[in-house]
Design a protein around this nucleic acid. Structure first.
Lengths: 127, 127
DNA sequence: CCTTAAAGTCTGTATTACAGACTTATGGGC
DNA sequence: GCCCATAAGTCTGTAATACAGACTTTAAGG
């Protein structure tokens, strides 16, 4: 990804084009998935996704700039990365994506995971 | 993107992880948008998106391997790239993405495009 | 203090991206 | 048939990015 001034203020007037600036990245998609499933610490993302630390840092910056996540400075020694409303609002899209992937990207009878309902519960129980 | 054996047979058992292999790319998202809006020729994609030709070639290969698009060999002198059912099935997801982007990635009162209903019409009228 | 752990940063190398020029093949006009 | 334009790529050189893995820093806990 090329360095940009701001992800929030991407200049495309098309909402798809603008969304693609943020979501058009494999790691960003995976980070949000883990966040929906409850991950909120740097090391958790590293361990669960096997992402390079430098790559994770840059993606978390993108997600913050775009207003999808927020970094909570460490109270003890752990910083937390938490979803903002714009991030939580992606849950229906992830549901769609999971349904689509499950239907079109697996061979006949190939075992597939479910998009856990706990992800949605995790968000709706938050308030 | 690192070279892979096959996008269709990505080994992640999670549908989100597998979807991310295909959709987690800015150009792939844009190509599908243009396809929904009626583009089906190489030069059309180049002109409408300003994508590098080599990059377009590689993304069209990915989309074919994943089963989202198909290349129709030239009848005259133009090859066509047409959506397969797996690709058309992404229209609801694009609708979601457009709604989300429109709501969360634009400043107050900033002018934004619409995800044209003609995109959906373009597909449902096809059969 | 000393040890562990979390959250990054740094380094060197391998891969990918990109602009833009070039190639090949077809079709149309004359 | 010959010339020109166009479509669909391919190629080349350079700039940017990705990655593994080592290193650094700060804070807690004992």
């Amino acid at each position: 990804m090329r360095p940009m001034k701001s992800y929030r203020a991407s200049r495309s007037p098309c909402p798809i084009g603008r969304a693609a600036r943020v979501l058009g990245d494999r790691w960003v998609i995976m980070i949000l998935r883990e966040a929906f499933l409850g991950a909120d610490r740097f090391e958790q993302f590293v361990e669960r996704m096997g992402i390079n630390r430098a790559a994770l840092t840059s993606r978390l910056e993108i997600l913050q700039e775009a207003g999808l996540m927020r970094r909570e400075p460490p109270e003890g020694k752990r910083a937390r990365y938490v979803l903002m409303p714009a991030g939580e609002a992606l849950v229906p899209l992830y549901k769609e994506m999971a349904d689509w992937g499950s239907e079109h990207l697996f061979a006949e009878g190939e075992p597939r995971g479910q998009w856990p309902s706990s992800a949605e519960a995790n968000l709706t129980n938050e308030a």
